[in-house]
Simulated assay, not measured.
Amino acid sequence: MDKSKEIFSEYSDIVTVDEVMKMLRLGKNTVYKLLKDGEIMNVKVGARYIIPKRSVIEFVSTTNRKS
């Protein structure tokens, strides 16, 4: 089984900016930059970001391959 799916199993399928901060242990500004730059797939509705958990998992997986 994919380790990142195990690690993030406590989170629902849609996560908030605060949850992404906890998942990735990053600051709020960094998470917002990743969202704005499209590094983590999201949908912006008004001022709110809708973030699928799988997009965070894909970001982690892709980042690991680049390293």
Score class of each variant (00 low, 15 high):
Val31Cys: 07
Tyr49Ala: 00
Ile40Val: 05
Lys28Gly: 05
Ser4Cys: 08
Glu10Leu: 11
Gly46Leu: 02
Tyr32Met: 08
Val56Gln: 02
Ser55Trp: 02
Phe8Arg: 06
Glu19Lys: 03
Ser4Trp: 10
Ile40Gly: 01
Asp37Pro: 02
Leu35Gly: 09
Asn42Ala: 11
Lys28Ser: 12
Asp13Gln: 13
Ile40Glu: 02
Ile40Asn: 01
Phe8Met: 09
Ile14Pro: 06
Asn42Met: 03
Thr62Pro: 00
Gly46Thr: 03
Lys22Ser: 15
Met41Gly: 09
Glu39Trp: 01
Val60Lys: 11
Ser67Val: 10
Lys36Val: 08
Glu19Pro: 01
Asn29Met: 08
Lys22Cys: 06
Phe59Leu: 03
Arg25Ile: 10
Ser67Phe: 07
Ile51Lys: 03
Val20Gln: 01
Lys36Ala: 09
Ser67Ala: 10
Lys22Met: 10
Thr63Ile: 03
Ala47Cys: 01
Ala47Glu: 05
Ile57Gly: 00
Met23Tyr: 08
Asn42Lys: 08
Asn42Thr: 10
Val60Ile: 11
Asp13Pro: 06
Ile51Trp: 00
Arg54Val: 14
Val60Glu: 08
Met21Arg: 14
Ser12Tyr: 07
Gly38Glu: 09
Glu19Asn: 04
Thr30Asn: 06
Lys22Ala: 14
Ala47Pro: 00
Pro52Phe: 01
Asp2Asn: 14
Lys44Met: 10
Tyr49Asn: 00
Pro52Ala: 01
Thr62Phe: 04
Ser9Arg: 14
Met21Phe: 08
Ile14His: 05
Gly27Met: 11
Gly27Lys: 15
Lys44Ser: 02
Leu26Gln: 15
Tyr32Phe: 14
Val17Phe: 01
Leu34Ala: 02
Gly38Pro: 03
Lys28Gln: 13
Asp37Lys: 07
Asn42Ser: 15
Gly38Trp: 08
Val60Leu: 07
Asp18Thr: 08
Leu26Asn: 09
Leu26Pro: 01
Asp13Trp: 06
Thr30Ala: 11
Lys33Met: 10
Lys5Phe: 10
Met23Ile: 10
Met21Asn: 09
Gly46Met: 03
Val60Gln: 06
Val20Met: 04
Leu34Lys: 14
Arg54Ser: 13
Ile57Met: 07
Leu24Thr: 05
Val15Thr: 00
Ile51Leu: 02
Ile50Pro: 04
Tyr11Glu: 07
Ile14Leu: 13
Thr63Ala: 12
Lys66Ser: 05
Ser12Asp: 15
Ser55Pro: 04
Met1Ile: 07
Val31Ser: 05
Asp13His: 11
Lys28Ala: 07
Ser9Asp: 13
Val43Ala: 12
Arg65Ser: 04
Ala47Met: 02
Ile50Leu: 10
Ser55Phe: 05
Pro52Tyr: 02
Ile40Trp: 00
Phe59Ser: 02
Lys66Arg: 09
Thr30Pro: 00
Gly27Asn: 13
